Every structure is written in structure tokens, then in C-alpha cells.
Computed example of a mutant assay.
Amino acid sequence: MLKMKKTAIILFAAMLLTAATGCSSTTSSTTAPAAAADKKKEEALQTVKFSEVIRSVFYAPHYIAMEKGFFKEEGLNVDMNTAQGSDKGAAALIAGVADISLVGPETAIYIYNQKGDKTLKIFHQLTMKDGSFLLSRNKVDNFKWSDLGGKSVIGWRPGSAPQMVLNTKLTQEKVAQTDVVTNIASTAMAGAFTSGKGDYIQVFEPIASSLVKEGKAHYVASVGQDFGAFPETSYVATSDYIKKNPAIIQKFVNAVAKGRAWMQTASSDDIASALMPFFDGTPKDIIIQSVDRYMKQDTWPAVPELNAQQFDTLQKVLIENGVLKPEQKVADINAVVDMSFVKKIGKAE
């Protein structure tokens, strides 16, 4: 009897083992191929080392392209870091630690005039307005640019696009004796202002809306809207990289274009939801406000092309600000600009 019980137990255990093995085998056969396919797809993506100048909602189409998977649709994996300055972003390209940088297009002109071994080329014009906003410490009704006379403004580093745009605007408005502070790091500007430095501050979104919401500043003007069209931020790569990797550049341009197109039909809430992973700790209402401000000033052009007229405007501002001598003006736009990839957006290969 005992022997029979033992035999029954052994048989029952064997049945359980067979059932478990069968179940495991079935699960493996259904999930393993899918997992393997996903892994293979990930491995097939080409990695692009990408450097952005700063983190700002000003560059929303790029983040949307990342979050909505448009880069992956094009077969690219974007490895992104933040340079904290166009000069650093350009240096990363020259050093080979970045493949593509989002920087001020003036960097390509500076590098070209150095006559070094490497040159940079602008291949996509992401923004067509300055992205900064002017905030005041005390409420100002009916702001006029002349209100800045005799006041101090926390601004951007010398030679940077927002600093030059502000300086040119002050010159155009004939505003005298404005002290523009340019020696504070971009990451420390808001802190310096809230601690009591400066009568005004020039900042990008979402910092501008955050300071206003916290009651630490008052919105007075959009520098970009008041200044007008200006090619402030471009995608740039070395001439060598573009020559060796035209397919990657085209895929990159296509993905960003998809990001901008998606934003044109998406709701403010959906756009903010897609951007939130890139702005940890920033409330959704602030992101919505930031996007709305950039949308209203027509920041992102439908055709992201840097043309001859805009290039001339850029060089004029550089000369007016003393960072480019008249004799250093680049006569041939093609020396530092390649818009051939932009012209192929939406066209079948």
C-alpha cells in the first residue's frame, strides 16, 4: 500500500513537472520572438551623439521628435546632452564628442573665419525668433524699451545670440545707460535675480513663466517678437560628418520636421504631456504657457530653411555687436550653410 502511494506521488509530481514545462515552453515561444525582434530593432538603430545648447521649451519640436518616437521611426537613437552654451556645443563638434549640435548659427561663421582644419555647416534652421523674454522685478504698466534706461538687466554671455539681439534692440530704440550683466552663468541667472540682483532679467521658457507664477517677476516683453525675424538656433555638424553621413542627416531632419508637424495639430495638453519628461519638476500649466508664448511669436518656421536674407540679417547683427569684422563677413552662404536636406523633407527617397 505504501509502495502504491509512493508510486502515485511520483506520477503526480511528474505530471506537475510536465505541465509546468509545457506552460513555460508555450510562454517562451510567444514572448521570446517578440522580445528578440524588439532587441534586434534597437540594435539596428544608428546612434547620434547630440548636444543641445541649453534645455528650453524653445526647442520643443526636437523633444517631441524624441518622445513620440519620430527619431526611432527614422532609424536613429539620439544620445543627448546639454552643453550650456553655443561655444561649448561647437567645441564638442570640433573635438568629435558630438555628431550634431543645436547652437547659434553664428558659431559656424566663427569657426569658418578661424581657417582651421574643420568647418561647420548649418543644415536645419529650427527657430526663427529670439527665444528670450524680458521680466521685471517690479510691475511695469505699458512697458516701453526706454524704461530700461539707467536700469540693470541680467542677460546672457557676450557674443551669444540672445545677448546680441537685446543689445541691437537697445541700440535701435536708442536706449542709453542700460547695464546689461553678462557674466552670470545661464544656470545661475534666475537665482541671481531672485536673490536681488538686477531690475530686469532676460530668460527663456519655462524659467520665465515659472518666475512669474512664483510672484518673483513680472512679464513685460517678448524680445523675439519685438525684434522680429532672426535665425537664432540651428542644427549644425562638421562638413566632414555631413559628407560621410548624408543619410543620417536626412533622417535627423525628417524626424524634427515630424515633431513640428505633430505640434501643429496636437492639443496644448498633449504637447505638454510629451514635453514633461524633459522638464522634471516643471508643472504642466507652466509648460503649456511656455509653448503658447513660443507658438504666438511664430518661433518654429514651417520651412526650416536659413536663406540668404536671414543669413544677411545674422551677419549684420554680428557686425553691429563687434564680434565679426566687416571684412570677415562670409560672402558665399554655401560655405557654412547646406539646406539640401531641408529641401528633401517629405519627399520620397
Rank of each mutant, 00 (worst) to 15 (best):
A237T: 12
M295H: 14
N254F: 02
P231L: 05
A247K: 15
T282W: 08
N254G: 00
P283W: 01
M276Y: 01
R260T: 13
A221G: 04
K296N: 10
A257T: 05
R293T: 07
F278D: 02
A247I: 15
S222P: 03
D285R: 06
A257Q: 03
D280T: 15
G281K: 04
K284Q: 15
Y235M: 10
A221R: 09
D270S: 06
S290T: 08
D280M: 13
A221T: 13
V291R: 02
V236Y: 12
K244W: 03
F227C: 02
T238E: 08
G224M: 00
I249M: 09
L275M: 03
K244P: 00
G224F: 02
A261C: 05
Q250G: 07
T233A: 12
A257L: 12
D270E: 12
Q289G: 11
A261R: 06
P246W: 12
S267N: 03
K284T: 14
V256D: 10
S268F: 08
G259E: 09
A266H: 11
I249D: 01
V253D: 03
A266F: 04
R260S: 06
V223K: 08
V253T: 08
K251G: 13
K251W: 05
M276A: 15
P246D: 02
V220N: 04
A266P: 02
I249P: 04
P277D: 06
A266C: 10
Y235F: 14
W262N: 00
L275F: 03
G228H: 06
M263K: 08
L275N: 01
M263T: 06
V223N: 14
A221H: 02
M295D: 14
I242V: 13
K284I: 14
A255T: 00
G259Q: 03
R293A: 11
T238C: 05
A255Q: 01
M276H: 14
K258A: 05
Q264T: 13
G281N: 02
G281F: 01
T233D: 00
A266R: 04
P246K: 10
I249F: 00
I248T: 14
K243I: 10
A229L: 15
I288N: 07
M295A: 11
F278E: 07
S239G: 15
D270K: 09
V220G: 07
A237H: 11
V253A: 08
K251P: 01
N254T: 04
Y294W: 13
K243W: 13
P246Q: 07
R260C: 02
A274E: 06
F279I: 09
Y219I: 11
A274H: 12
F227Y: 10
P246R: 13
A247D: 15
E232K: 10
Q225T: 10
Y294L: 12
D285P: 07
G228R: 04
I271M: 01
M263G: 07
T282R: 02
S222R: 10
D270V: 00
I286M: 11
G228M: 12
A261M: 05
Q250V: 06
Y219C: 12
Y219Q: 09
Q250W: 06
N245I: 06
V236C: 07
A229V: 14
S222A: 11
G224Q: 04
F279D: 02
